[in-house]
Amino acid sequence: MRNGEYLCLLGPTGAGKTTILRIISGLTIPDQGNVIFDGISMNKIEPEDRRAVMLSQSYALFPQLTVADNILFGPDIRQYDQKVKQRTLAEMLDLVRLTHRPDAYPSELSGGMMQRTALARALASGASVLLLDEPLRALDARLRISLRHELRSLAKSMGITTIHVTHDQDEALVMADRIAVIREGRVVQVGTPGDVFDNPASPFVANFVGQSNFFIGTVEEKSESTSVRGELGHVVMARPCDHKLGEKVVVGVKVGNTEVHKEGEGYFDGTVERILFEGRNIFLDVDVSDVGRFSAKIPSWRLGRLAVGDKVKIKWSADKAIVFSMPLGGLEKELRVE
């Protein structure tokens, strides 16, 4: 990781994200391998000397201390000068918009305020690495969305290297400089949000970060784009690939890039099974007989003419679809999100 970078560790529950944070902070000792800060191995360094502050899901605000005392916990331990402490406190309260509540106890605060206090406490301790373990999970969905930007810009403005663990792909896309997708203890892909979304390394990533439709077939032709033929004769187009002709592959395309039309040409003919209004988008399920269900996410202002039961064509542009090797354990196992 680079200095001052904001990295999201994204993966399902039980993927080992929190363990990584604990290893970085020194709370868990790895069986093997090194943690290196600024070129120095941290293996023999105790957690308290690493300057890597952990912010847990529940915030772990000390219930017997006020907001101010919580924030001053780090400076107190490090025995900063009284004046420095007061200045830090004032700065921090201002930064997290809590100047009006320094004497409140954690139990009197709302979820958002607790989260901000915990953040201020971490920043005040002079941390150079911030380890956030699902910092927004305990908050309401809507509040979570509004706090994303605030959290990121706070970390950015302090120039702190941040590692943020989350299971929420939207959160990761919106907040990260880079995303590391983790599954079953392994890093599956590391890249910018754009990379991870547009060029997923595996069907799992394609489906986990924004849903995807998948189609299984064999490579039929390779030119400027790849054409893949399914068992029942359907042919779909995708980006160029390195797979051999005749190889069994999986084509993945984001539901947001799947187009549904009533007229014109399409890879599949299907029937609209369900239409769900999701606000900005409409979520559409189209049943293609013998092939399965395709979903599409269409901006809602473009809807209007479609209704359940309509016969439609499904299509996507070749440069939005990616060819993957057939996963060893089968597609279903690869896509499991739990």
Binding site: E48, A52, V53, S125, G126
Partner: peptide, 27 residues
């Protein structure tokens, strides 16, 4: 008591004995 209290205290720079005295003991 959730162990994260003490763990957080340690990542904030508290030695184990300080973590016990200031965080765990009061609880």
């Amino acid at each position: 008591i959730d162990p994260t209290y003490e763990e957080t205290a340690r990542t904030l720079g508290a030695k184990p004995i300080q973590g016990f005295k200031r965080v765990l003991f009061p609880m």
